[in-house]
Simulated scan of single mutants.
Amino acid sequence: MTNAAATEPVAISTGEPATTVTRGTVLIVLASFCFGTSGPLVKPAMDAGLSPQQVASFRIGLAAALLLAFVAVTRPRLLRLRRSDLPLLVGYGLVGVAAVQLLYFAAVSRIPIGVAMLLEFTSPVLVALWVRFVRRVVLSARMWVGTALALLGLAMVAQVWEGLRLDTFGLLFGVASALCAAAYFLIGERGVSTIPPLGLVTWGMVVGAVAIAVVTPPWSLPGETMTATAEFAGLAVPVWTLLVTCAVVSTAAAYLLSISAMRYLPANVVSVLAVCEPIVATVLTWLALGQTLAPVQVLGAAVLLAGATVVQLASRTPKVVLVGDAVQPTVG
């Protein structure tokens, strides 16, 4: 006689505690705020005459130098590398730091910024597809609905229909930036399982800075532009102070908070919650640079936040694994 208890699937709760989910959510929201400050900070610098590539080179180069000096003084043991970690660190730095920045700026140079932003922030869908079909983890319907709502809200905030024009290379650059952004979340999630977040971000930033320096050396920035003043929040602010703030807040702190969030939440959840960044960027641009918000952007922000909330709540739901003939790991 077959033992029914032995063959019947058994549900096992593998969900993360609510406090862990909350901690990860707070970290990625703070990271999104920090990332979102980059646009309002660097736009006056670019209006003053700096190219997007020069801005990226400076912000990543300075962030790498500051992180390296801070870690060397406070926690030098984090700078010790294991040979087995080198491929991951190089991949994280080249793809998640350098390539995603350069490809996004390349897309912006050829297609409207709203379209480029939407393309880059399709990365949550790519991460979800990887988790579903490569890792064979079943994602709940709420996770997919929340992701779709977040992307719809993003499209409304970015107003992608404004000045839309087709440019093959621009679209390719945008799609490539999305692939790199997805790789950033997946590599970061894997990295924090063996490397402390501070060490991972520091070495990743160093690798990214070296890679971008090959294309645009930070020392090539014109001194007269760096010392010139630009208007920010109604004040005349030196360009170099905007770039230094961007390097500290929008780069070093943002990457560290984002990677730290992956210690508490899976990559697919973090990537969706990260789409709050365009809301922060849009609101800060309105406050600091005086650019107005259209009603559709306000509505889009609400839709985006609703989608992010659905994903966040889904991540609190205990995951169920069926043990027996029907083994189905689930998330959300």
Rank of each mutant, 00 (worst) to 15 (best):
N3S: 02
E8L: 08
E8N: 07
A11M: 12
A11N: 06
S13M: 00
T14S: 04
V21W: 07
T22S: 08
T22H: 06
R23F: 10
G24W: 13
G24P: 00
L27W: 08
A31Q: 10
P40L: 07
P40Y: 10
P44L: 07
M46F: 04
D47T: 10
L50N: 09
L50H: 10
S51E: 09
P52A: 09
Q54R: 12
R59W: 00
I60S: 07
L67R: 08
A72W: 14
T74I: 07
T74W: 09
T74N: 11
R77C: 01
L81E: 02
R82S: 10
R82N: 12
R83L: 03
S84P: 01
G91W: 09
G93T: 11
G93Q: 13
L94T: 11
V95G: 00
G96R: 05
Y104F: 15
A106N: 13
S109P: 00
R110T: 03
P112C: 02
G114F: 01
L119G: 04
F121T: 04
S123C: 09
V125P: 00
V125H: 00
L126W: 14
A128I: 04
L129Y: 06
W130D: 01
R132P: 04
R135A: 13
R136P: 03
V138T: 14
L139K: 05
L139A: 06
L149S: 07
A158K: 03
Q159C: 04
G163C: 06
L166P: 01
L171F: 15
L171D: 06
A178S: 15
L179N: 04
L179S: 06
C180P: 01
F185W: 12
I187G: 11
I187D: 11
R190C: 10
G191M: 12
P196N: 11
P197A: 13
G199K: 10
G199C: 07
L200A: 13
M205Q: 14
V207T: 11
G208I: 09
G208D: 13
A209P: 09
V210E: 08
I212Q: 12
A213I: 12
V215W: 15
W219K: 08
W219Q: 10
G223W: 12
L235Q: 13
P238Q: 11
V239H: 12
T245F: 10
T251N: 13
A253Q: 06
L257T: 08
L257V: 07
L257H: 10
S258K: 02
S258V: 03
V270S: 14
A274L: 14
P278Q: 09
A281T: 14
W286R: 01
L289D: 04
P295K: 02
Q297D: 02
V298Y: 03
V298H: 02
V303R: 03
L305Q: 02
L305S: 01
A306P: 03
A306I: 02
A314F: 09
D325V: 08
P329C: 11
T330Y: 11
